[in-house]
């Protein structure tokens, strides 16, 4: 708008007064400034600092630490067997959590898609786990797996799945399944809500047209529902994967990485380094590697999607 005055001298008197113009132009910035300032100071600045820590020796217990040490942390990291185990555990944890959340979330969304008596109340109840604080979800499941107060070991024993009613959280072979089950319980509602929203955006007459054309329920699902849901599924799975790989609450609460580091994922490993050993430099270096891996993963997915789209 300001350039117009310069363009045409004769129209200068047509411009709004400077004060009003400034007020008009600054309104959106004033509305968003408080939020932005907060985000920049409490998230962006620490992010940049955190990246710099990765190249410095920052240990809270060592008063003279703080110097730049270049890539030393990364060299240590490349030799760190605990890190590699945490990376493998992260894959295991993320893969199973996302897969199970997605499958059960999709089934739930399909079940809730058509109206039935009591749907509103059912919806409120099945989405309830989402509101449960994550630490409480973790504790709750830890208790359920505890043979002293929880029924699960006894049920598994009664079904013959376990030879003794033990706590799977203390069994190195099975421990990871504890947090995964808690995560699935906690995360199904997120997938279900997102997919339900996408399902309800599918025009109903498409189904009617398809059934007039003679398509059965399975055929309708494959030829209408899935293609329509595909973009939502892709983006939700992508976001969820990134989010779950960073999600350490359940593990910290339920197993704290144990037994024998069998449930230590990268995110909880970072937290352990920072919180227990107060080695902020090394923690930041691990976090940076995790961030890089997640960015590479996201890029791969985006490229794969582009490639699939261009192939059609």
């Amino acid at each position: 708008m300001a350039s117009l005055a310069a363009r045409n001298g004769g129209s200068q008197r047509d411009q709004r007064p400077l004060k009003k113009r400034l007020a008009d132009a600054s309104a959106p910035y004033l509305y968003s400034a408080p939020a932005l300032i907060l985000i920049v100071t409490v998230m962006l600045v620490p992010l940049v600092l955190g990246i710099s820590y990765a190249f410095r020796d920052i240990q809270l217990l060592k008063p003279f630490s703080g110097g730049f040490i270049g890539l030393d942390h990364f060299r240590t990291l490349s030799q760190d067997q605990n890190f590699y185990r945490a990376l493998r555990n992260t894959l295991w944890w993320t893969g199973w959590s996302v897969l199970l959340q997605f499958v059960f979330g999709l089934i739930l969304a399909l079940l809730l898609d058509k109206p039935f008596f009591g749907r509103a109340i059912v919806q409120a109840l099945v989405f309830l786990p989402w509101a449960v604080p994550s630490f409480l979800a973790g504790l709750n499941w830890a208790w359920l797996f505890n043979p002293v107060v929880g029924p699960l070991p006894h049920w598994l024993f009664a079904l013959g799945i376990m030879s003794e009613p033990n706590n799977i959280l203390s069994d190195p072979q099975l421990a990871m399944w504890g947090p995964i089950i808690a995560n699935v319980w906690w995360g199904i509602p997120f997938f279900a809500i997102t997919l339900l929203a996408a399902l309800q955006a599918i025009p109903r007459d498409l189904y009617e047209a398809a059934s007039i054309d003679g398509a059965g329920p399975v055929k309708r699902f494959l030829s209408i529902t899935l293609p329509f849901l595909a973009p939502t599924i892709a983006i939700t799975v992508l976001l969820r994967t990134v989010w779950i790989s960073n999600f350490a609450d359940l593990i910290i609460v339920m197993t704290n990485g144990g037994p024998a580091d069998r449930t230590q994922i990268v995110a909880s490993y970072i937290f352990t380094q920072a919180f227990k050993r107060l080695d902020f430099g090394y923690a930041s270096a691990i976090a940076l590697v995790l961030l890089a891996l997640l960015i590479i993963y996201s890029m791969l997915i985006v490229v794969l999607r582009q490639w699939l789209l261009s192939k059609d």
């Binding site: 955190g50 920072a274 902020f280 923690a283 976090a287 995790l290 996201s298």
Partner: peptide, 11 residues
């Protein structure tokens, strides 16, 4: 998008 764990130390 980025892991909040990354911010623990700097914050």
């Amino acid at each position: 998008m980025f892991p909040l764990v990354m911010l623990v130390a700097p914050i």
